[in-house]
Design a protein around this nucleic acid. Structure first.
Length: 568
RNA sequence: GCGCCCAUAGUUCAACGGAUAGAACACCAGCCUUCUAAGCUGGAUACGUAGGUUCGAUUCCUACUGGGCGUACCA
C-alpha cells in the first residue's frame, strides 16, 4: 500500500494525521494536499502562517523520493509527486500484492454476522428483495476483504400469516395443473388473497365478510403451527418450492450463505422465551395479546403474540438473536433490513437490554425500491418480480451482444449476456447510497452506457484486449513520466483507502463511484496515449500499468459481486 | 398527534465544515483506413424558503414549505 505509507511518512514529518490529507480539486493544484484550517485553530495561528511554518519544516527534512515539490497555497499545503518514482514504486507495490491489493486490516478479525435476503416463502421475490440481496452480499464481501470474520446468513420467514393467506387461496384457486413455475404461483395466490381481503373490507356489510375470511386464514395458521393435518402437509410441500426458487436466485447471482435460518425452526424456542419474559415482566398481556410495552423509552408498543394466540414475527427473532450469539460467538449481529423497520430493531434491542443480555445488534438499513406507478406491494400486486426483471435484463443484454458480435456462437453470447445482466442489476442497486429511495425504471436501470456496470466491464474488456495482444514483460516503470499515467496510478493507489472507507461506512456506493471514476481516467488515457505503438521499453511499462489496473478492477468488481469480462 | 428520512442541473445521483458544487442520462456540435465507438472531446443548465452558529455552511442548529416512511395484533 504505497500511497498509504507515503501519506504516513508525510504525516509524521508534519506531525499531523494521515487522514488529514485530501486530494485537491482541481487536480492541477497538486497530487496531495493538506488543509490547515483545523490545525491552525488549535495552534492559534492563521492557516496561511501555519502553512509557511510547515514549508520551513519540510525544507529541512529528508523527503520521500516520490515527492517532487510542495508549495503553500493560502491555507493549503500542496504536494506534487515525481511521476517516474511514484509510478515505479506504486505499480510494483500493486503487482506484488496482486489480488490482495486493497486488503486493509481495519476489521481486526471481529466476528460479524450479516443477515440479509430475508425473503418470505409463499410470496413473490421482487426487485426490493434484490436490492437487499445485492446490498447485503456486497457489504459481506467488503467486510471479509477488510479483515473481518464476516458470516453471511439468511433468515427465511416460512411460518408467518402470509403463509396461511397463500395456502388459503391455493386451495380455493385451482392452479395445480398450471405450467407456471410453482414459486411464482404461490406469489400469485398471496396477491389474490390480499386482494380478496381488501375487496371484502370495502363491501357494504361493514367488513363482516373480511372477518369471516380472516377467521378462515387464522384457522389455517393454527393448523400449520400445530404441525399436523392437511394444511401442515401442504405447507411442507409448498415451502420447498419457494426454497428451491430462492436457491436458483442465489446461484444466478453468486450469493452464498454460510447458514440459512428458518422461522419454523426457531419459533418453538421463541415461544419459550416469551413465556420466560412474561414471567420476568419484560412482556405483558394486553387486550388478549402479548406485547412489549416500551412507551416509557419512547419506543411505543410491540405486539408479540396476537389475541388469537398465533405468533407474530418478534417471537422467532428473539430466539434467533440469542441463537446467533450463543452458537457463533459474535462481536456483532447486523440485520440488513429495509429502513422502515428501524423502530422494530430498536425495540428488539431494548427487549434484550431489559433481559440483561449484552448482544450488539445493529440494523443496517437501506431505503426501499419503489416504482413510477407507486409503492411496490405484493399485497396489491404492484411489483416488478425477480423473474420479470431478469428476463428483461437478460434479453436486452443478449441483444446488445448479438448486435456487436454476429460471429459469436450462441453459447458464448449467452454466457456474456448472463454476466452483463447480473452485473447491470447489481450495480444499479449498489451505486446509489443506502439512504436513497430507488425509483426503479426499467429503461434507466438496463442501460449499457454511462454510470453502469457495462461501462466498467467495457473498460476492463478493452484493457484485456490489449493485454492479449502483448504480454507485459519486465518493465521499468520509472519511464512512465506522463501526467496521465501519474493520475491513473494515483487513482489505483487510492483503492485500499476506498475499500476501507466503504467497509467502515458499510456503503458499497462509495466503491461503485470510485470504480467508475477510475474507469473514466483510464478511458481518457486510452484515447490519448498509444500503448502498443510505443517504443518497446515504454510499451512494456505501459502494459505493466494496464496489468495493475486490471488487478484493481478485478478486485473491485469482485467486491461488488460481478465478473470481469475478457471480451464484450 | 408524535417520531424518523429526504429536498442540489430538465431527469437520476455525488460532494470528512473549506480551493472554481462534480458525474451520468437527455439535448446540440465533433471524433472510427489507428490498441473494442458499450468509448472519447466540446457546449447550456442546480444547492426548497427564512433565520442562527462559524474566519468560512450544500454540509451543523432552529423554524417553515414540499415529498416519503414509521407509529398494537403485516413483515
Amino acid at each position: 500500500m504505497f500511497l498509504v505509507s507515503l501519506k504516513d511518512k508525510l504525516a509524521s514529518l508534519l506531525s499531523v494525521s494521515a487522514d488529514d490529507f485530501v486530494y485537491p480539486i482541481p487536480a492541477e493544484l497538486g497530487d496531495l494536499s493538506l488543509p490547515l484550517f483545523a490545525l491552525a485553530k488549535s495552534s492559534g495561528m492563521s492557516p496561511a502562517a501555519l502553512a509557511q511554518e510547515k514549508i520551513r519544516l519540510l525544507e529541512q527534512s529528508d523527503l520521500p523520493a516520490a515527492i517532487q515539490s510542495f508549495q503553500a497555497v493560502g491555507p493549503y499545503l500542496n504536494f506534487f509527486f515525481k511521476a517516474g518514482v511514484f509510478n515505479r514504486d506504486a505499480l510494483s507495490d500493486i503487482e506484488k500484492a496482486g489480488h490482495d491489493f486493497g486488503r486493509m486490516a481495519v476489521g481486526r478479525q471481529q466476528r460479524i454476522m450479516l443477515e440479509y435476503s430475508n425473503a418470505n416463502t409463499h410470496k413473490e421475490y421482487h426487485i426490493g428483495h434484490l436490492r437487499n440481496l445485492f446490498f447485503g452480499d456486497a457489504v459481506y464481501r467488503i467486510l471479509a476483504f477488510n479483515d473481518y470474520q464476516a458470516i453471511p446468513v439468511s433468515y427465511i420467514n416460512d411460518f408467518g400469516i402470509h403463509v396461511a393467506k397463500t395456502l388459503w387461496q391455493w386451495q380455493r384457486a385451482n392452479y395445480k395443473d398450471s405450467d407456471a413455475p410453482k414459486g411464482w404461483l404461490l406469489g400469485k395466490c398471496y396477491a389474490e388473497a390480499s386482494g380478496l381481503l381488501s375487496q371484502a373490507e370495502a363491501r357494504e356489510d361493514g367488513g363482516a365478510e373480511k372477518e369471516e375470511i380472516k377467521k378462515e386464514i387464522s384457522a389455517v395458521m393454527k393448523e400449520v403451527e400445530s404441525r399436523q393435518g392437511k394444511n401442515y402437509e401442504l405447507w411442507q410441500e409448498t415451502r420447498d418450492w419457494s426454497i428451491a426458487y430462492f436457491a436458483e436466485i442465489y446461484q444466478r447471482f453468486d450469493v452464498k450463505f454460510e447458514h440459512i435460518f428458518y422461522e419454523s425452526e426457531v419459533i418453538g424456542d421463541g415461544l419459550k422465551m416469551v413465556a420466560e419474559f412474561l414471567q420476568k415482566g419484560i412482556l405483558k398481556n394486553s387486550q388478549g395479546a402479548v406485547i412489549a410495552d416500551l412507551e416509557e423509552y419512547g419506543l411505543g408498543v410491540l405486539p408479540i403474540i396476537r389475541s388469537d394466540g398465533t405468533a407474530l414475527y418478534p417471537v422467532a427473532d428473539l430466539a434467533l438473536a440469542k441463537l446467533k450469539f450463543n452458537d457463533y460467538h459474535l462481536d456483532e449481529s447486523v440485520y440488513v433490513v429495509d429502513i422502515r423497520q428501524g423502530l422494530y430493531f430498536k425495540q428488539l434491542a431494548k427487549i434484550f437490554e431489559l433481559a440483561g443480555e449484552t448482544f450488539k445488534i445493529s440494523h443496517l438499513g437501506y431505503d426501499f425500491v419503489t416504482l413510477k406507478s407507486g409503492m411496490m406491494s405484493s399485497r396489491s400486486g404492484n411489483v416488478i418480480t425477480y423473474s420479470q426483471i431478469w428476463e428483461e435484463a437478460y434479453s436486452r443484454a443478449r441483444q446488445e451482444v448479438s448486435s456487436r458480435h454476429q460471429d459469436w456462437e450462441s453459447e458464448r453470447a449467452e454466457a456474456a449476456a448472463e454476466k452483463l445482466a447480473v452485473a447491470a442489476l447489481k450495480f444499479e442497486m449498489l451505486k446509489v447510497s443506502a439512504d436513497k429511495v430507488i425509483t426503479f425504471d426499467v429503461d434507466e436501470a438496463l442501460r449499457f452506457d454511462g454510470f453502469t456496470a457495462a461501462y466498467l466491464q467495457y473498460t476492463g474488456a478493452r484493457l484485456a484486449s490489449i493485454l492479449r495482444k502483448e504480454k507485459p514483460a519486465d518493465a521499468d516503470y520509472s519511464m512512465l513520466s506522463n501526467r496521465r499515467e501519474l493520475s491513473l496510478t494515483l487513482a489505483m493507489q487510492r483503492f485500499p483507502e476506498v475499500v476501507a472507507k466503504t467497509g467502515l461506512q458499510r456503503d458499497p456506493s462509495i466503491l461503485a463511484r470510485y470504480l467508475f471514476e477510475l474507469s473514466q481516467i483510464f478511458n481518457d488515457y486510452y484515447h490519448e496515449v498509444a500503448i502498443l505503438k510505443a517504443e518497446p521499453a515504454l510499451r512494456f511499462a505501459r502494459l505493466g500499468l494496464l496489468g495493475s489496473l486490471r488487478l484493481v478492477l478485478e478486485n473491485g468488481f469482485a467486491l461488488l459481486g460481478f465478473d470481469y469480462l475478457e471480451e464484450m
